[in-house]
Amino acid sequence: MLNVIVASITIICVIIFFVLKYKRPETIWLGISFLAILSGLFLIIILLLLSAEQKSVLIVLSITFVIILSILPLLVVGIFFVNGINLIKKEGARFTNVLSLLMACGLVFYLVIWPRILDITTSHFLNTIYQFVVSTVFYLSFILITYAITNIFNLIHFTHPIVNYYIVLGAGLSGQEVTPLLAGRINRAITLQKKQNTGKIIMSGGKGTDELIAEGEAMTRYAIEQGLDSKLLITENKSKNTSENIKFSKQLVDNDWIGEGQPKLAIVTNNYHVLRALMLARSQGLKCIGFGSKSKFYFSLNAFIREYVAYLKITYKVHTIILSFVAMFYIVLYFVMLIAG
C-alpha cells in the first residue's frame, strides 16, 4: 500500500514538473518538483529492497549515504575556498569577487568554530539560537539547490522553437571593446541565429559611469566584425541594469515587429545569469526562453552566488515571512522548555 502511495505522489510530481517546464520554467517550484521526483524514486527503491529483504544492499546504501553526508560539507568548503582564492588572484580582491571565499569561511565557522567556542548543551537559550540558525542554514541551502536546479533546466530545451529576437544582455566593457565574457554572450547569440537562419539580435546595454561608449554600441560593432549582417542587429543603448535591458529591448521589439501574433523572445546571457533574467522578464509580463554562454568555473561559481543573493533580494518578503514563522516556533519552544525546566 505504501509503495502505491509513494509511486502515485511521484507520478503527480512528474506531471507538475513537465507542466512547469513548459508553462512556468522560471519558477523555483520547477527545482522543488524535480527534487520531489528524486526523493520519491529513492524511497520507492528503498521500499522495494525492504519488501525483497535485500538487507545487504540496504546496508551498503546506508553506509554510502553516511559517507557522502560526511564528505560533502568538507568538499563544498574546499571547492568554495580554492575557488575564492583563485578568483581573487585572477580578478582582484573586490567585494563581488570574495563571495565564494566568504561562503567557505561562513561554513567553517558554522560547522567547526561555533560548536567549539560555545557549549550550547548547557543553555536553553544558546541551544534555541543554534537550532534556529541550523534551520535557517538548511532552508537557505535548500533554496540554493532548487535555484541551481531550476537554472539548469532553463538551459535545457526539449524543443527548439523559432526565435524572432535574441536579447543579448550587456556585461561591461574594456575601454571601447567587449570583454571576453561579453564576447561569449554575443558569439552564443550569433551561433543560435545562424543555426535557425532567421531572427534578429538586440544588443542591449547602456553607458556606465566608467565606460567610454554604450555597451550596446560596442556589442553591435563586435558582431559586425564577426561577419553578421548589420540588418540583423538592433542596438539598445540606454539600459543600466538587467531589468532595463529587458524593458527597453521589448520596446524596440514592439517598434520593429511586423509579423503576426506575438514575437518569440530569447534572452542570451551567461549560464549562471539566465534564471534571474527570465524571472525579471516574467515580472514584466514577458514570456522568454533563455540561452547561456559558458564562462570559466572559478568565475561562474562566485557569480552564481551573487545571482542567488540577488534572487533572495528580489523575493525577500517570502523568505522573511517563512523564517519569521520558524523564529516564532523556536521562541515558543524556548519558553515552553524554560517553564518546564
Score class of each variant (00 low, 15 high):
Y147P: 06
Y147I: 00
A148R: 01
I149Y: 07
N151D: 10
N151Q: 03
N151P: 00
F153R: 08
F153A: 07
I156F: 08
I156L: 09
F158C: 01
F158A: 01
T159D: 10
H160W: 03
P161E: 11
I162Q: 15
V163G: 06
N164K: 14
Y165N: 08
Y165D: 06
I167L: 13
V168M: 04
L169Q: 06
G170H: 11
A171G: 02
G172V: 05
G172C: 02
S174W: 11
S174V: 05
S174C: 12
G175Y: 10
G175V: 09
G175F: 13
G175Q: 14
Q176I: 11
E177H: 12
V178L: 00
V178W: 02
P180C: 02
P180Y: 06
P180F: 03
L182P: 01
L182F: 01
A183D: 01
G184E: 00
R185H: 02
R185C: 00
I186F: 02
N187S: 01
T191H: 12
L192C: 04
Q193V: 02
Q193A: 13
Q193I: 03
K200E: 09
K200L: 09
I201D: 04
I202S: 08
I202W: 06
M203I: 07
M203W: 07
M203T: 06
M203K: 01
S204V: 08
S204W: 05
K207I: 09
K207Y: 11
G208M: 12
G208V: 13
T209V: 15
T209Q: 15
E211F: 12
E211S: 11
I213C: 09
A214V: 06
G216H: 04
E217D: 12
E217V: 11
E217A: 12
E217T: 11
A218V: 08
A218D: 11
A218F: 03
R221K: 14
Y222D: 02
Y222A: 00
I224H: 04
E225A: 04
Q226S: 00
Q226W: 00
G227W: 02
L228H: 04
L228C: 04
S230Q: 14
S230Y: 05
K231H: 13
L232D: 15
T235K: 09
N237Y: 10
N237M: 07
K240H: 14
K240L: 15
T242I: 10
T242E: 10
S243I: 12
S243N: 15
I246Q: 09
K250I: 11
L252Y: 12
L252T: 02
V253C: 09
V253I: 15
N255I: 13
D256G: 07
W257P: 06
W257D: 14
W257S: 09
